Amino acid sequence: MRLIPALAIAGAVVALPLIWIGSAYFFAPPDPDGAGKPLFSNAPAGSAVDSAARIEIEILRQQMEDLQKRLGTVEDDLTRLQNMPRDPTDFGNQGSDEPLERLGDNQILDSYAQTVLIAGRRKINEGLSVSRPSFLIEMFGLPREQLSDDCESMTNPKLKEMLITGDVGPIRVSMLRPAVASMTRVFEKVKAVDVDLYNRISTAGALCVRRIRGSQSSVSAHAFGLAVDLNIDGHLDTLGDGKTQLGLTILSDFFQEEGWFWGAAFSREDSMHFEVAKETIEKWRSAGEI
């Protein structure tokens, strides 16, 4: 029971001004005329000490009345809380294993979609390198013979054999098998640490066999099933503005730990973009995973 300690504390707060007034009454020095009257007596006018004391007393009395009112409010609130139902089934249809319904705005939860500047973005992928198109082509070959700016089917048999489609926690993707396994581990960690963020993760796509937009020859990491675009609550990032959603900055730590390169470091910032780093692909090749 927390009610009794709370009331005791509130009562002590109210009693402090009374104790002060009482001590001032009993231990006050006599007036200058030697009549032995305490400060609270009707001392003759002109006593500066008495005037100052009365002002303080009135202030303390007012404070005491305010505290008494607050104590009454505290008592009412504590009584109401004490009498609330303890059976989880009393909260509507929600069982004991279900979280209570969120009441009102939660500024912490709502901040995940907030747009923020990316601090030191060119240095955020320390120890990881972007997978250049030339490296990917040398490793896998072209994902299809002819590439355009549109997403088309993959025709490279080696890549198609490794391509799978599945759920990786909050989203569903088509990517190379080791990339799907890696992303699954990422989201398992996110869910364990921050389930609220996990539940708000959306995707703008993963596999897309095409050129890098604006290029006539360079092939995108998306074309190899090695990249994914993520966002919070389905709100797409503005390309190249140096800003991103706060939730993505949190996600980037988990992806970098797993060996993914964050596109926020591109010369033209693309903070929705996460792709498997060159070092990770080389590790997968050495382990025989690709």
Rank of each mutant, 00 (worst) to 15 (best):
M162C: 05
A10L: 04
V116F: 10
L128Y: 08
S286N: 07
V195K: 06
P88D: 04
L197V: 10
N93P: 08
F254V: 04
L100P: 09
S41N: 03
L60Y: 11
S51C: 01
I59M: 02
L109K: 05
G242M: 04
D167A: 15
V168D: 03
S271L: 02
D110G: 05
S215P: 04
R132Q: 12
V209C: 14
S174V: 15
A277H: 02
A192L: 03
L159S: 07
E161F: 12
I21H: 10
T280N: 03
D50Q: 11
P88E: 02
V116I: 14
S174K: 15
G22Y: 11
E126Q: 11
I250S: 06
Q82W: 15
T280G: 05
G225M: 06
L226N: 00
V193S: 11
G288N: 05
E161D: 06
K278L: 13
R285A: 13
L117V: 15
I57T: 14
D194W: 14
S267L: 05
A35F: 03
Q256T: 12
T155M: 01
D66S: 06
I281R: 04
V180G: 04
S182M: 06
Q82G: 15
G92L: 09
L163I: 09
P44K: 08
T244F: 12
N83T: 13
S23M: 02
Q94E: 05
Q107E: 07
T165E: 04
K278V: 05
L236D: 03
L18E: 07
A179K: 03
E152G: 15
N125R: 04
F26P: 00
T184S: 12
M84Q: 13
A45E: 08
I118L: 12
G95Y: 07
S252C: 08
D237N: 13
Q68K: 14
S96V: 15
G95P: 03
A206P: 07
G104R: 02
V219R: 00
A43R: 11
G22H: 06
L207Q: 07
E279N: 09
Q68E: 11
E258L: 09
L103V: 15
F266G: 00
L3H: 13
R285P: 00
R268Y: 11
A223Y: 09
R61P: 00
I4K: 09
L159P: 02
M272F: 09
